[in-house]
């Protein structure tokens, strides 16, 4: 049993489509340069959907943007590497080479509430701009491919290409975003809060589409979200971020059932169930830290942690493998965190 798990873990390691190593992203503030992401280590195994969760300000969107090497000023990637299969280290790319990778190798889909389309041009015209930017010779083929993708996602492809942004609903915009991210056959799809600001039915539809497209196109997908429901719905793997650190990761079902970090447990505990007593949802006391309030030494979570010990104030826990295919950054005994999980 343990052996087979070990085996799959190693295979995943070998076949990572994206592997982030020791990534640190600094933002310039009044108090000097502060890390929004610190020493992040994560793999996106080929063909899997990884969920990246955390509260706002945890650095999850920053991590997603750094995969595109698109940290906006005054931020910068200060160290680490991001190896993408077939592309190399994204952090080393710049100018034209970087532009070519964006959209062609890596597809990025914006939050649905954000307007990711030029309001003055039809989707079709923007598709042609995309084709020209990436030197696509066969424009007809590109349009055909976009139409197919749109049809696959349950839209009228021809009509969508003829529409302006204001003529599309939130759910449709989101799907158009996915079409534009995939139309050049990107292998990696990054979705930033794909369901935020959508109504429940559109959320379900978009998740269904993500799952379907992911499978059909054989993608490697990263879903950034604060919604544990989304993660439990579609993710194969789960990574939890807090204060710019990845504090736990592993297979989604295992992490959700047996969280090994007190923060993960709190996140799960704070999610209200659709049926049953809402009192079972327990809010995490305290506020999520921002760049300036993250503790500089020790564990970033210790101020809100029910299990905090003396050592937590002194040494920052490393993200270490504690069970097959599972990692966590916590000084407490894994048994304690899991056991109290049910008691809370």
């Amino acid at each position: 049993m343990t052996d087979t798990v070990q085996l799959t873990a190693e295979r995943a390691e070998a076949a990572a489509e994206v592997s982030v190593r020791d990534l640190t992203v600094l933002y310039r503030t009044d108090q000097g340069e502060l890390p929004a992401v610190a020493h992040a280590d994560i793999d996106l195994p080929t063909g899997t959907i990884t969920g990246l969760v955390g509260e706002s300000g945890s650095g999850k969107s920053t991590l997603a943007l750094s995969l595109m090497n698109a940290i906006p000023a005054p931020g910068r990637i200060s160290s680490g590497s991001i190896q993408v299969n077939g592309v190399g280290d994204v952090t080393r790319l710049e100018g034209r080479a970087l532009r070519r990778v964006r959209g062609r190798a890596l597809g990025y889909v914006f939050q649905a509430s954000q307007n990711s389309l030029n309001p003055l041009k039809t989707v079709g015209k923007q598709l042609l701009d995309l084709g020209r930017a990436h030197d696509v010779q066969d424009m007809r083929g590109l349009v055909r491919r976009a139409r197919e993708l749109a049809d696959e996602m349950g839209m009228d492809g021809a009509r969508v290409l003829d529409s302006y942004q204001h003529e599309l609903s939130g759910g449709m915009r989101q799907r158009v975003g996915i079409v534009l991210a995939l139309v050049l056959n990107a292998r990696v799809l990054i979705l930033d809060e794909p369901t935020t600001a959508l109504d429940m039915l559109s959320q379900a539809a978009v998740l269904e589409i993500v799952r379907k497209v992911h499978r059909q196109e054989g993608l490697t997908t990263l879903v950034v979200t604060h919604d544990m429901g989304v993660v439990s719905e579609i993710a194969d793997r789960l990574a939890v971020m807090y204060g710019g650190r990845i504090v736990e990761d592993g297979p989604a079902t295992e992490v959700l059932q047996r969280p090994a970090h007190p923060y993960t447990r709190a996140l799960i505990g704070a999610t209200a169930r659709i049926t049953g007593d809402t009192d079972t949802a327990r809010a995490l006391p305290g506020r999520p830290p921002d760049l300036t309030t993250v503790p500089r030494t020790g564990c970033v979570f210790r101020e809100r942690c029910p299990l905090a010990m003396d050592v937590c104030a002194e040494t920052e826990p490393q993200l270490l493998t504690w069970a097959p295919d599972r990692r966590r950054a916590c000084h407490a005994d894994p048994a304690t965190t899991a056991a109290t999980g049910e008691g809370a």
Partner: peptide, 28 residues
């Protein structure tokens, strides 16, 4: 600062085309 400008950058749209997007939206 609009989202679609960052979005088009992340799609690898050329700087010239992005400039046209910006100018047309800004001149309205």
């Amino acid at each position: 600062g609009d989202d679609f400008i960052l979005a088009s950058e992340l799609r690898g749209i050329t700087p010239l085309t992005r400039m046209r997007y910006i100018a047309r939206n800004a001149i309205l």
